[in-house]
Write a protein that binds this DNA or RNA. Structure first.
Lengths: 362, 362
DNA sequence: GTAACAATGGGATACGGTTTCCACACCAGC
DNA sequence: GCTGGTGTGGAAACCGTATCCCATTGTTAC
């Protein structure tokens, strides 16, 4: 036995094992495998044969220590099962794989502690970028927190990307990929107004959530544009879930609130609202119209199919990855331009079958 | 300037920078950080101070090269956006994070090439386990392919886990986490039969897909148990998507096929079927009953809420991770027991509002 | 026939940590 | 006062790969 670990040892084979067995140097094996150095055909064959025999794969950790290595992008998300953001993740992962990048995933569960821990973990991993997904609560602290993340990551040669979150103020090294949230809400509300609806129950989401704020604001602007007075009493805040949609409608009906349409902050909320209307014996859209937001698959699977706002989630994911990839290749188009790091994608209304003009009631 | 890289260089700080600045040795810094060696309070304070100042995090690659490092589990999935398997992923990721493990994610898009490439990639990463998600097409080749994966990973000190796929035959080093697929289908069909339905349209899924085969078989067994002759003409195969549900029902109606209930292979298929029935002017469940399978959130968001089979997807994910974690701690309970590596979780029917006894037709 | 040069392979080093071994200081006990 | 333990900190040897630099060989031009 030599003093070196024998090649038939337990555990994975190393490049040395391959070199030894092929009767060549370690350097040659490395060159054959990475293929960025001229190598004779004979040597290549000898090495490849052994690689096959040993079922050898290079150690990614060692490789990235030595300078090479595949770039990795980290996706941090509140909840994997949220339909909307699953699509963003798909976009990121797909675009990453396309360029041979790897995707790490972590869920934060809306917990700032875990978010911090994960960002640090990703920093340890030396990821090329950290993509933070999902609407945020815009506390005062949020900006500071994210700015700290951004600088930390930047100092480590990484980069922070915010997707579907408000952009950072000031000169912070981060990229934001956003969609025209308010514009979508404006268009959606306009659609209802132009159909003749005047009394609209609005369920924008949690008052503190930035996406909810934008959606409410868009609706208000539409009312203003149509010269229809906006009644704050028609707004019910709450989480983006099925139960909230159901309960908000149920309560409103019980309170005798009069409305001919529901403007839901999310398709899932719309689904809950629809169920509650049915339970109360009202027909959709004959008695009450409903619209959603997000255009997740659920929207077209409901009966009637839901008119909603399409958000290009998957595209946002792709764009996010492209942004960091470009920046990595050195195409940092505008240097330090505090915008140019803020990309906004368009939204549009998808008309299906959940809206009708309000019934003429005696 | 010393010959070493200066500490204020671009890029992340190294442990040497910390040591230098704290006036201690590299070894001491390492010990303070990993905390598995007695260190004086004074030294700890000095080191931690510098760590904070420099915002230093250890290099995960270097660490795992040197033997330490956080274990990583790889989740390979056809399509992130599939609701059912998003839940499995959530279970795996949640359990992983709980123990401080990391989760890598890759999507295969049903492409064997990509599957192979990803398994090798994960092998390079030195992951503790590779979790393969989703029903498989049980070609002859499947067993060989998976056996090869299993041995490859095993040889590299990793481990293959199959979730929701058929177990491997023979003495292959892999773990399978499964659910009682056929039993669920049996119970679901029994539920319809005991409600009085006799003519049931069955949409089990793709004929080659193992999950579809099991669901069909369960239904057949139920018919047999109830002494109801099974009519193969009532079975329509197709993909697990909304469109298939819609089209299968539409066609069946056009062909004049008589049925009082639909047994869908998936909740999403059931949603499509429901829509098609409505489009044809039939009421659910008054005219036709519908049941699904999986119990994803959609099931309770449809109108009427769907009676379906609950599959403990998230639990499966947790169980899968627990299995590999246990094995890693050395609790390889039964050694080489070719079962004991096959865990089966139970399923059960969730009764909601989409089933009624068949209408008395004249 | 020899010099200059291209093509190719090998040895050594660096990457950033962890860990083993050792040296040193300090203290108690005789 | 000397010996033997005990607690601390440092030097150096790895971990597995990529790459720089140099040696060797074969080839072409003079």
């Amino acid at each position: 036995m030599s003093q070196r670990k024998a090649s038939n040892d337990v555990g994975r084979a190393t490049i040395r094992d391959v070199a030894e067995r092929a009767g060549v140097s370690v350097a040659s094996v490395s060159r054959v495998l990475s293929g960025n150095y001229p190598v004779s055909e004979e040597l290549r064959r000898r090495v490849m044969k052994v690689v096959q025999d040993l079922d050898y794969v290079t150690n990614a950790h060692a490789r990235s220590l030595a300078g090479g290595g595949t770039p990795t992008v980290a996706i941090l998300i509140n909840n994997i099962t949220g339909a909307a953001f699953a699509h963003v993740a798909k976009g990121v992962e797909g675009a990453a794989t396309l360029r041979g990048w790897l995707s790490l995933v972590g869920t934060t569960g809306d917990d700032p502690e875990r978010e911090l821990a994960l960002v640090n973990l990703m920093r340890q991993q030396g990821v090329a970028a950290v993509v933070l997904l999902g609407g945020a609560y815009d506390y005062d602290e949020y900006q500071l927190r994210m700015a700290r993340f951004a600088r930390s990551l930047d100092a480590a040669g990484s980069h922070l990307v915010l997707v579907g979150r408000p952009p950072l103020e000031g000169d912070v090294p981060a990229t934001t990929v956003d969609y025209d949230n308010e514009g979508g809400a404006y268009a959606m509300a306009s659609h209802l107004l132009s159909a003749g609806h005047r009394r609209v129950l609005i369920l924008p989401g949690h008052a503190e959530l930035t996406t909810a704020q934008g959606r409410l604001k868009g609706a208000e602007r539409a009312f203003e544009a149509y010269g229809v007075p906006f009644d704050p009493g028609m707004v019910r805040h709450g989480p983006y879930d099925y139960e909230h949609g159901y309960e908000a409608v149920e309560e409103s009906l019980r309170e005798g609130l009069a409305f001919t349409a529901v403007l839901a902050g999310t398709d899932v909320v719309a689904a809950g609202a629809m169920q509650a209307l049915r339970a109360a014996g009202l027909r959709v859209p004959d008695d009450v119209s409903i619209v959603g937001y997000d255009d997740i698959p659920l929207a077209s699977q409901l009966t009637p199919q839901l008119t909603t706002v399409h958000v290009p989630y998957e595209e946002m994911g792709r764009v996010a990855l492209r942004a960091v990839a470009d920046r990595r290749e050195g195409n940092a188009s505008r240097r330090k331009g505090s915008d140019g790091d803020h990309l906004v994608l368009g939204t549009h209304v998808v008309v299906r079958h959940s809206v009708q003009p309000p019934a003429q009631r005696g």
